[in-house]
Design a protein around this nucleic acid. Structure first.
Length: 278
DNA sequence: GACCGCGGCCACCTTACCTCA
DNA sequence: GCTGAGGTAAGGTGGCCGCGG
């Protein structure tokens, strides 16, 4: 699939994330086709429902180097399906370690004890996460051994860490979209005012001198789309026009574009939903 | 080659526990 | 000491993919 990050790499506390708007994806050491690493966020996660997808950094190269893909499957994994085995073994007393919080002998099996990772363990896990947001089974086992934890704990930590990162990223994205929305609203208001002024001018008596007709909106700030990064101006897939607010503004200004049967021809390709209102 | 079952991994949601104000 | 909020380890579930029969 060889998906690329859609751009917008944001750094979050040193964590590089690929923010893929709509078609993103990356690579994981374990997944040859990078399955599941780029998922649509549920609407509940973002009130603006931009249908964002987030992707983790592309680790394809390192995956190849570290025996990812098929090789990863050859290593006996200790996850989910194996977790049951692992837990059964643990129930039999074959605990690797749960000494992280100094509570290693208090488990009667009925109550769930919360173990806290030590600072050193957390720091090392963070380091590894910065390198790769996912682990292949070999790395997992090695790291678990190094940290004196169970592989399952390392796996869970990475899962939770990814979730936290994604949540944080979602908040950032929502904030960005909110600002976009506000700016566009303001821009729309400004254009409406400008349109009203131009209409008033049209029906007004001709000006005595050209200089007085210089009712230039040049004092106005540059349109919003001029302030947008280039990545937000995308090509509409259906009509292959440059999308984004620029096209919408162009169409709005050029009334001839709207035919009899087409009330509005907005070539505003929304990069978040991949839907062009053409 | 298509189909099916299985194992593995992941995202996502939820729960339970811990810490702190 | 009690309480509520926030953080986080861990449990559970469903989906996707690769592999082998």
């Amino acid at each position: 699939m060889a998906q690329e990050d859609g751009g917008g790499h944001l750094s979050d506390a040193g964590l590089e994330l690929g923010l893929s708007l709509g078609g993103g994806g990356g690579g994981t050491p374990n997944a040859p086709a990078h399955r599941g690493s780029s998922r649509r966020l549920s609407p509940s996660q973002c009130p603006l429902e931009p249908s964002l997808t987030l992707s983790m950094p592309d680790d394809a190269a390192t995956a190849a180097a570290s025996g990812g893909g098929g090789a990863a499957h050859s290593v006996s994994s200790l996850s989910v399906g194996a977790v049951k085995r692992e837990r059964a073994e643990e129930a039999d007393g074959e605990r690797v370690s749960s000494t992280a919080a100094g509570r290693d002998d208090d488990d009667d099996g009925s109550t769930r004890k919360k173990l806290r990772l030590t600072k050193e363990q957390s720091a090392l896990l963070e380091d590894r996460f910065r390198e790769h947001s996912t682990l292949n089974p070999k790395q997992k086992v090695a790291l678990a051994k190094q940290l004196n934890l169970r592989p399952r704990q390392v796996e869970v930590w990475f899962q939770n860490r990814r979730a936290r990162t994604k949540l944080k990223q979602t908040e950032v994205d929502c904030e960005f979209l909110k600002r976009c929305c506000e700016t566009l609203t303001e821009e729309n208001r400004r254009l409406q005012r400008e349109l009203q002024e131009l209409r008033a001018l049209k029906f007004a008596p001709p000006p005595p001198s050209p200089s007085s007709a210089a009712h230039q909106p040049s004092a106005a700030p540059p349109p919003f789309y001029m302030q947008l990064p280039a990545a937000t101006l995308t090509i509409c897939p259906s009509c292959e026009r440059v999308g984004g607010p620029a096209s919408a503004a162009k169409v709005a200004a050029d009334g001839t574009k709207a035919g009899p049967g087409r009330t509005s021809t907005h070539h505003f390709f929304n990069p978040f939903t991949h839907s062009a209102a053409c």
